Computed example of a mutant assay.
Amino acid sequence: MSHEREIHSAAEFDAVLAAGGSLRGRRIQSVDLTDRTFALLSASTADAVFLGCPMQPEAAAKVRADGALVFPPVPDLPFDPYRARLYSPAELYEGITARPYEETPDALSYAWFLRTRADGDIFSSMLRSLHDDAISDALDEALAGRRVVGVMGGHAMVRGGAPYAGTARLGRALTRAGLTVATGGGPGAMEAANLGAYTAPLPDAVLDEALELLAKAPSFVPSITDWARAAFEVRARWPRGGDSAGIPTWFYGHEPPNAFAARIGKYFANATREDGLLARSTAGVVFLPGAAGTVQEIFDDTTPNYYAAGTAPTPMVLVDRAHWTDRLPAWPLLTALAEGRPMAARIALVDSVDEVPQTLERLTAAR
């Protein structure tokens, strides 16, 4: 479906009608139309689809009579299954400065997920699928034409430590090189990379100051509330941060989303989230030290590179030689798989994050 057929806001709705007066074949997504009854009664809506658009009863009856499909809003949900855009940190953490994390939309959505994921209710399953498909659509639109580099790493990396600071410098360097940083959107290494991207357009000293402020709440354990409030304190002090993407999941609800990714595509289905994150990392993927989740991501990324036919494999850079050869020996297996294949020229193992930007550049140029 062409994105040109979609309408995502009241302003876009008005502009379409002003230009041609017809909604025929359009997809109107999560737009409040309760005060646009006259427009709906006047316009042609044949073959249109209205996804979660509140409207007056007479308008709904008319568009249905035209042959439009109307998917009404679902009441009493902490999320919008038809949403047209990615999340922002402020949206997921609404009220965090005055209320505990458990009362935010993010936490309420996770609580709903816990209640419904194993109840066997096809309606709940459908709502999760609708939401996740809408997020995928929004990600495609948000990242179209961008050179996206994925930065993968574990959630256990704490604020205030040298690894966290190094990962933040990496995110800053990649962003300043014209790349869009995308992470798993959670805490630890993921937050550090998004923080670096956030500080990229600001003076170098800002990152150092931000690291000091964040260190007062080193981890999301035991208090997500304190951890999140420290991040929003940084955002309030420097409100004009840089762009990056975070792609977290409610499947790992104990991992809250970090507040430094400007664009957040949060999923219920972790498998969809993992595949989507790696597939959209078209400029390469950096794998920082991590545990089972990061190992899974390495080989999720390896499979399409191993079988790549007609397209260049995506660059893969593993960081920390000791970690990936001794503690979790993913590198020997990766090199064994790559032997004799085009992907062999697109993988690298480096000792520190400082080597990553130049290594990515070299791998991208490799034939």
Rank of each mutant, 00 (worst) to 15 (best):
residue 216 K to R: 15
residue 215 A to E: 09
residue 212 E to R: 14
residue 218 P to F: 15
residue 231 A to Q: 15
residue 216 K to G: 09
residue 236 A to Y: 00
residue 224 I to Q: 15
residue 228 A to T: 15
residue 210 A to P: 04
residue 180 T to D: 01
residue 233 E to K: 10
residue 220 F to M: 14
residue 183 T to I: 02
residue 212 E to M: 10
residue 226 D to W: 00
residue 188 G to Y: 08
residue 230 A to I: 08
residue 217 A to M: 11
residue 195 L to N: 11
residue 191 E to D: 04
residue 177 A to N: 13
residue 205 A to G: 09
residue 183 T to E: 03
residue 226 D to Y: 02
residue 234 V to T: 13
residue 210 A to G: 12
residue 189 A to F: 02
residue 204 D to I: 00
residue 177 A to M: 04
residue 194 N to I: 02
residue 196 G to Y: 05
residue 233 E to Y: 00
residue 238 W to T: 02
residue 223 S to Q: 08
residue 229 R to D: 07
residue 230 A to D: 05
residue 197 A to W: 05
residue 198 Y to S: 01
residue 236 A to F: 00
residue 211 L to K: 09
residue 207 L to H: 01
residue 225 T to Y: 11
residue 176 R to W: 10
residue 193 A to G: 07
residue 208 D to R: 06
residue 205 A to T: 13
residue 234 V to W: 10
residue 229 R to K: 11
residue 226 D to E: 14
residue 242 G to W: 07
residue 209 E to T: 05
residue 218 P to C: 14
residue 202 L to E: 03
residue 219 S to G: 14
residue 241 G to S: 05
residue 189 A to M: 04
residue 177 A to S: 15
residue 228 A to E: 14
residue 187 P to V: 15
residue 189 A to I: 02
residue 186 G to Y: 07
residue 206 V to L: 09
residue 238 W to F: 06
residue 208 D to I: 00
residue 232 F to G: 09
residue 192 A to L: 07
residue 209 E to K: 02
residue 189 A to R: 01
residue 236 A to D: 14
residue 230 A to C: 12
residue 199 T to H: 06
residue 212 E to F: 01
residue 241 G to M: 02
residue 218 P to H: 13
residue 230 A to M: 07
residue 187 P to T: 15
residue 210 A to M: 03
residue 224 I to F: 11
residue 178 G to T: 10
residue 213 L to P: 01
residue 196 G to W: 07
residue 183 T to L: 04
residue 193 A to S: 08
residue 192 A to K: 09
residue 240 R to Y: 10
residue 212 E to Q: 14
residue 219 S to V: 06
residue 242 G to I: 15
residue 214 L to S: 12
residue 186 G to A: 14
residue 217 A to C: 13
residue 239 P to Q: 13
residue 186 G to K: 06
residue 202 L to Y: 01
residue 187 P to M: 13
residue 186 G to R: 08
residue 183 T to R: 05
residue 206 V to M: 14
residue 193 A to H: 04
residue 195 L to H: 08
residue 227 W to M: 07
residue 195 L to V: 09
residue 202 L to F: 02
residue 204 D to N: 02
residue 194 N to K: 01
residue 190 M to N: 12
residue 215 A to S: 13
residue 181 V to R: 03
residue 202 L to S: 05
residue 234 V to G: 08
residue 211 L to S: 08
residue 201 P to K: 05
residue 214 L to M: 11
residue 230 A to F: 00
residue 212 E to D: 14
residue 206 V to Q: 12
residue 218 P to G: 13
residue 197 A to I: 04
residue 237 R to I: 01
residue 230 A to G: 08
residue 234 V to F: 09
residue 232 F to L: 12
residue 207 L to W: 03
residue 181 V to A: 05
residue 222 P to N: 15
residue 191 E to F: 00
